[in-house]
Design a protein around this nucleic acid. Structure first.
Ligand SMILES: Nc1ncnc2c1ncn2[C@@H]1O[C@H](COP(=O)(O)OP(=O)(O)OP(=O)(O)O)[C@@H](O)[C@H]1O
Length: 701
DNA sequence: ACCTGGGGAATTTTT
DNA sequence: TTCCCCAGGT
C-alpha cells in the first residue's frame, strides 16, 4: 500500500521528513493526526525502524487505540498484536510503563498503585486529621487542586514551603508534606507523580536515560499544544542527539491550561530544537465553508495566538444555525426532536450526531428529553464506569491485595460490607500498624498483638485479614476475573449491595460488567493499570446512539452534525472566568472554536432565555461568541413560523434517490443524490441544484 | 457502631 | 435539584 496515498503535498512532506525535528502547526481538521499516523507507518515500512524504537504520544487512550487501529490497517497488521506496535499511549500511560520497568532504581516498587482524585482527597483528609487541621478551615478538594497544580509546575513540597507566604499557604505546605509522606508509605503515586517521577528517573539515573534515548529513535507527539511542564521535561530528557522528534498541534485549540498545559511549548518548539522544519497544513478537510468562517470569526478575536489560514474546497453548506429557546427543557427537547426528525428522514444515523456542552451538569436535561422521545444516546465522560461505588469497592479490594500498604484502599473497604469496624477502630488500627513494621495485611493477621482495639473489632479485623490473605495467595496463579469472583464470594458483597432498592439491580449489573471486563486481562497489574488510567473520554461511542459530551472531551473528534447547547454568557464563556482575566476568557473562546470545528456538515448552537441553576431560575444573555460569528448564521426563535414549518416538514417521509419532487422556486425534478440534508436534484428545466432539504421546502409528487 | 433525616453547599473543564 | 456531611437516636 502506498503510504502517501490520500495525503496532500504538505502532509506528504511531513511524512517523509524523517530526520531532524519537525513541527506541524496547523488548524482544525487539516489532517494533523492523519499525517502523524501515516508518518509512523512510513517509518516502520519504509525506513525500517522497529516499532519499539518509536514513541508516539496521544492525548487520550481512545486516541491511542484509534491510532493503533489505523496503523494496523496501513501496515496490514493486526492492531491487537502489540508486538508490531510502537510505544503508544498517553504521557501518563507511557510513564507507568516506564516506571514499572525502571522505577526501582529510584525507590519506586514494581507494584506501586495509582491514586485517583478520590484517593488523593481521602489521603489529604487523613493527613489533615493527623495535623489537626479542620476541614472547615481548608477544604481537602482545594488542597488537592493546589498540590496538583504545584506538581504540574514541578514544585515539590519543600519548594512549595519556601514559596509559601500567607498562613493559609503555610498550612497547605504542611499538608502537602504530610500527604507526600503518607503517599510514599502507601506505595502509591498520584496522577501527577507519574509524570514527575519519570522526570526524576531520567534526571537522577543518567544510564537509564541514555538507554531509553538510544532506544527511541523517533518520538511523535499529538496535541502538543496541551502539554504541561513535566511532560515538556520528559520530552527534552528523552530526545537523543538525532533530534528525531515530530510534534503536531494547534495553539488555537489549547484548552487545558487550567491543568497546567502551556501552549507556549508549541510556540517555542523551534527555539528548543535548532533546525526545525515547520510544516503548515492549511486545507481543512472536515467542515463546510460556513462553519469554518463562523469558527474563524470567533477565534480571530483572540489576541494571544499565531496567525493561520484555513480554507476548504467544500461549498458553503448550510449556515450555522442558532436556536433561541425559552428554557433548558425546551432546549433539550428541541435537540432531541431535530435529531429524531433527521433520522426519521432517512438521511442520517443517530451516530452522526453529537451534543456538546460546557459543564457535565447540562447533560441532565438532555437525558430526560432524549428518554422521553426514545432517542438513543450515550454519555462520554461524567461518571466514569470505574468511578461507581460498587466498582471502586471491588477495585480497592484488588488493590489492597496487590499492594498491602495501600492505606486508602484499606480505609475504603475495611467496613464495606459492614462488619462492625467503625472510624474509631480503624484509626487505632492504622496508628498501631504504621508504628509496627508490618504491612496492612500482616498487621490484620496479627491484630491480636494490639491492646487498643475492642475485642469485637479485633475479631472482625482478624477475619478480614484471613480472607484477604487467602485471595492474595492466588494472585500469581489466577486471572483478575477469578480474583474478583473469589472476593465477591468471601465478602458476600453481592448480598450487601442487593438491598432491595431500585438501584440494586444496576449495581449488580455493574459488577457483572466489571467481571466481563476483567476477562480481557491476564494479570492483575495489567488490569489495575487499565482501571487507573482509563479516562471518561475513553468510552466508545457507537453508530446507533447520539453522543453527549463536554466540549473538552470532544477535542480531536468529528461528527457530521454537532449541537452545542447553552451558548450563553455565564456558561460559555463560563462565569468563573469573568473575574479571572483575559487569558481565561481567551481559553473559553478556544473551547468554543474547538466545539464548532468538530462539525462536518451542520452546526447548531442553542441558548435558553432562562435556565434553572441550583434550583434558581437565572436569565443569561446570548453568548458574545455568537455575536462574533458574523452574519452568515441563521437565527431561529421559538415562536416564529419557521419552527412550525419544520414541524410539518419533519412529519413527512424521508426522501430517497430517484424520487420526483416539486420545489416552489425551481419546479419539478428528480433527486439524484443525498448527502446528509443536502439533496442534489436534476430539475426538469435542465439545471442541477444542491438544495438543503430543511430549507428548500420540497414536496413529493 | 449503625442508621436516618435535616440542613447546607454545589458546578467548570480531566489525564 | 442533588448530593454530602453531621448530629442525634437506637
Ligand atoms: N489529504 C486529505 N484528503 C482527504 N481527507 C483528509 C486529508 N487529510 C485529512 N483528511 C480528513 O480530514 C479530517 C480531519 O483529519 P484529522 O482528524 O487528522 O485532523 P486534525 O488536524 O487532527 O484535526 P483537529 O486538530 O481538529 O483534531 C479526517 O476526516 C481526515 O480523514
Amino acid at each position: 500500500m502506498d503510504l502517501l496515498e490520500g495525503l496532500n503535498s504538505a502532509q506528504g512532506e511531513a511524512v517523509q521528513t524523517v530526520s531532524g525535528p519537525v513541527l506541524i502547526l496547523a488548524g482544525a481538521g487539516s489532517g494533523k493526526t492523519k499525517t502523524l499516523t501515516h508518518r509512523i507507518a512510513y517509518l516502520i515500512a519504509r525506513e525500517a525502524i522497529y516499532p519499539n524504537e518509536i514513541l508516539a504520544v496521544t492525548f487520550t487512550n481512545k486516541a491511542a487505540r484509534e491510532m493503533r487501529e489505523r496503523l494496523g490497517a496501513l501496515l496490514g497488521q493486526d492492531s491487537t498484536n502489540r508486538g508490531f506496535m510502537p510505544w503508544m499511549g498517553t504521557f501518563h500511560g507511557i510513564c507507568v510503563r516506564m516506571l514499572r520497568i525502571e522505577g526501582e532504581s529510584i525507590g519506586i516498587p514494581k507494584n506501586f498503585v495509582i491514586y485517583d482524585e478520590d484517593d488523593r482527597q481521602g489521603l489529604i483528609k487523613q493527613a489533615m486529621k493527623q495535623l489537626s487541621i479542620s476541614e472547615t478551615e481548608i477544604k481537602a478538594k482545594a488542597v488537592s487542586g493546589i498540590i496538583s497544580s504545584s506538581k504540574n509546575e514541578m514544585v515539590g513540597p519543600d519548594n512549595y514551603e519556601s514559596l509559601a507566604q500567607l498562613p493559609y499557604q503555610k498550612n497547605i505546605a504542611k499538608i502537602y508534606k504530610k500527604y507526600e509522606k503518607l503517599r510514599k508509605v502507601a506505595k502509591a503515586l498520584d496522577f501527577d507523580d507519574l509524570l514527575l517521577e519519570t522526570v526524576r528517573l531520567f534526571r537522577e539515573k543518567s544510564e537509564v536515560r541514555t538507554k531509553w534515548q538510544k532506544n527511541f529513535k523517533h518520538i511523535l507527539i499529538d496535541e502538543y499544544q496541551d502539554t504541561n511542564a513535566a511532560q515538556y521535561h520528559i520530552i527534552k530528557l528523552l530526545v537523543n542527539d538525532q533530534h528525531n522528534i515530530c510534534v503536531v498541534g494547534d495553539d488555537w485549540q489549547s484548552i487545558y491550561s487550567w491543568r497546567g498545559a502551556d501552549f507556549t511549548n508549541i510556540l517555542n518548539f523551534e527555539r528548543d530544537f535548532k533546525g526545525t522544519k515547520v510544516i503548515k497544513l492549511e486545507q481543512n478537510y472536515r467542515s463546510t465553508g460556513n462553519i469554518l468562517d463562523a469558527a474563524n470569526n470567533v477565534i480571530t478575536k483572540n489576541i494571544q495566538r499565531t496567525d493561520k489560514k484555513l480554507w476548504t474546497v467544500e461549498g458553503p453548506g448550510s449556515p450555522v444555525q442558532v436556536h433561541s429557546l425559552y428554557d433548558e427543557t425546551e432546549e433539550a427537547h428541541m435537540v432531541a426532536e431535530r435529531i429524531a426528525s433527521h433520522v426519521q428522514l432517512g438521511a442520517r444515523q443517530f451516530g452522526d450526531f453529537a451534543v456538546l456542552y460546557r459543564t457535565n451538569a447540562q447533560s441532565y436535561n438532555l437525558e430526560r428529553a432524549f428518554m422521553r422521545l426514545h432517542v438513543p444516546y450515550k454519555i462520554i465522560g461524567g461518571v466514569r464506569f470505574y468511578d461507581r461505588k460498587e466498582i471502586k469497592d471491588m477495585i480497592a479490594y484488588l488493590r489492597l491485595i496487590y499492594q498491602p500498604q495501600d492505606r486508602m484502599s484499606f480505609s475504603r473497604i475495611v467496613n464495606v460490607p459492614t462488619r462492625g469496624i467503625g472510624a474509631m477502630s480503624l484509626e487505632k488500627f492504622l496508628i498501631w500498624q504504621s508504628e509496627s513494621d508490618m504491612d496492612i495485611l500482616s498487621a490484620l493477621n496479627h491484630v491480636d498483638q494490639t491492646s487498643t482495639i475492642t475485642a469485637r473489632a479485633k475479631c472482625a479485623l482478624q477475619t478480614l485479614g484471613e480472607k484477604l490473605r487467602e485471595v492474595q495467595l492466588m494472585i500469581d496463579t489466577s486471572t483478575p476475573a477469578e480474583l474478583i469472583k473469589k472476593l465477591l464470594d468471601l465478602t458476600s458483597y453481592k448480598d450487601f449491595i442487593n438491598d432491595g432498592t431500585p438501584q440494586a439491580e444496576d449495581r449488580l449489573e455493574n459488577i457483572g460488567s466489571l467481571l466481563s471486563d476483567a476477562q480481557n486481562f491476564m494479570s492483575l497489574d495489567e488490569f489495575l493499570e487499565e482501571v487507573a488510567l482509563m479516562s471518561s473520554a475513553d468510552n466508545s461511542s457507537d453508530g446507533q446512539s447520539v453522543t453527549f459530551m463536554t466540549l473538552h472531551a470532544a477535542k480531536g473528534l468529528e461528527f457530521p452534525v454537532v449541537f452545542i447547547i447553552g451558548v450563553e454568557e455565564g456558561i460559555l464563556p463560563h462565569a468563573r472566568v469573568y473575574e479571572a482575566g483575559s487569558a481565561e476568557l481567551e481559553e473559553e473562546r478556544r473551547l468554543m472554536y474547538v466545539g464548532m470545528t468538530r462539525a462536518r456538515e451542520e452546526l447548531h448552537l442553542s441558548y435558553a432565555e432562562s435556565r434553572m441553576q441550583f434550583g434558581q431560575r437565572s436569565y443569561n444573555p446570548i453568548s458574545r461568541f455568537v455575536t462574533d460569528m458574523g452574519d452568515q448564521i441563521a437565527i431561529t426563535s421559538p415562536n416564529e413560523p419557521q419552527t412550525i414549518h419544520e414541524q410539518e416538514f419533519f412529519s413527512d417521509e424521508p426522501f430517497a434517490i430517484g424520487e420526483n419532487i416539486r420545489s416552489a422556486a425551481f419546479g419539478t425534478g428528480e433527486i439524484i443524490e443525498i448527502d446528509g440534508m443536502a439533496l442534489t436534484i436534476n430539475f426538469d428545466n435542465g439545471t442541477t441544484k444542491k438544495l438543503n432539504a430543511e430549507y428548500a421546502r420540497l414536496e413529493k409528487i
